[in-house]
């Protein structure tokens, strides 16, 4: 099964999760997702997701100038973002359990 299809539904949650401990700029978030094992995640999808979460008021952003190259826009989780992460995390866990049960030892 193509994991990129699965990813679409949970990319929000994944992005919120990697921003929980530490703020990050776009490429940072992308790297953390890949390091976490989401190899299939698309670059543009991550940037798009960041914009959507930001426009939905779940993230705040600030710009940090960098010595070499363009300045970087960091995103950080705000209170609504934390709440969303908690909620969606619960939903995901119960969903994953349900699917595990359905699959049983067949998988």
């Amino acid at each position: 099964m193509d994991t990129s299809q699965l990813l679409k539904g949970v990319l929000d949650l994944a992005v919120l999760a990697v921003l929980r401990k530490e703020d990050g700029y776009g490429y940072d978030v992308l790297r953390r997702l890949r390091q976490g094992g989401l190899d299939d995640v698309g670059d543009a999808s991550v940037y798009g997701t960041l914009r959507r979460l930001y426009n939905a008021g779940l993230l705040t952003s600030y710009v940090v100038p960098s010595e070499e190259g363009p300045h970087r826009k960091y995103y950080s989780l705000n209170e609504p973002g934390r709440e969303r992460l908690l909620e969606s995390g619960k939903t995901w866990k119960s969903f994953a359990r349900t699917l595990d049960d359905l699959l049983g030892e067949g998988a």
Partner: peptide, 13 residues
Amino acid sequence: EIMDDAGAHVVEV
């Protein structure tokens, strides 16, 4: 805003 983010990403890549 997008170009700030994603544009910087392209440059970095």
